[in-house]
Amino acid sequence: MTRYILRRLLQVIPVFLGTTLLVYYMVFALPGDPIAALFGDKQPPQSVIDALRAQYHLDQPFLVQYGIFLKNLFTFDLGVDYTQQPIAATLARIFPVTAMLAIEALIIQAVFGVAFGLFAGLRRGKLFDSTVLVASLVVIAVPTFVLGFVFQLIFGVQLGWAKPTVGANANWETLILPAVVLGLVSFAYVLRLTRTSVIENMNADYVRTATAKGLSRPRVVMTHILRNSMIPVVTYLGANLGSLMGGAIVTEGIFNVPGVGNKLYQAVLRGEGPTVVIIVSVLVLVFVVANLLVDLLYAWLDPRIRYEK
């Protein structure tokens, strides 16, 4: 187990370096001057350009720039954006909002996806199962931004169950509507994955053994079928964090949530290189670490991995 954890930890390093290097290169080293873009048509004095270039280390060779960026990232010295606001303070303000949104969406898709998938799988071929299967295809087909507008219109504007836009006061309650929208697409995938997995495990030898031992049906379902069916689902949930982050860009825009996705979108459109690179790097780090945790959870769920040399 220790060796497994160590190996997984070591694998994280090249992935993180590779991804951040790729993003850093695309933002700063490809043709097109990020500083000149700031001023639009006006030509700033050369001294201003030089000062800005020095401040963002753009006068250094590329790899040195990247090295300084990494050093700053790990010492939490994130510097200032092009409007001279400290990026660290901005992150501290917007990150908890997106974390709340993502956790809420994750809970919604995991709890409802697994519950519906389990019931559908146990009643395979029945009315509930076929209805849920077709409905999940429809949910998958509707893009997040369409779903966002439709939900905003129906539940926010017409029914008035939730506030159509979140604005400054983001908390667990106001974030429910965007979280449902964000979680819904993956909810359908979780449901289908759980269903397939449950059907596969229902006919497994160990389930027959458990039933033959005289265990009650709920116990067989909960500890034998469900736990083993969770293995692919947990992997999917971890890998899916990435699309959750992508979805957050759209959802936060529609519901005006002051979070990371919204900020990143604005920063990309305005060409604020330093902010973009830092936000993307932090997101990549979160994603990589989350997948590491998922792999460890996976090892806990599946003894075959745990006891592997």
Binding site: L22, V27, P31
Partner: peptide, 24 residues
Amino acid sequence: ARLGDIFFALPILLGALVITQLPF
């Protein structure tokens, strides 16, 4: 395998947003 790991760690919409803003 390494390339796949790197691209896998970059959510597709995030990557697309960064790439589409390149001057080209």
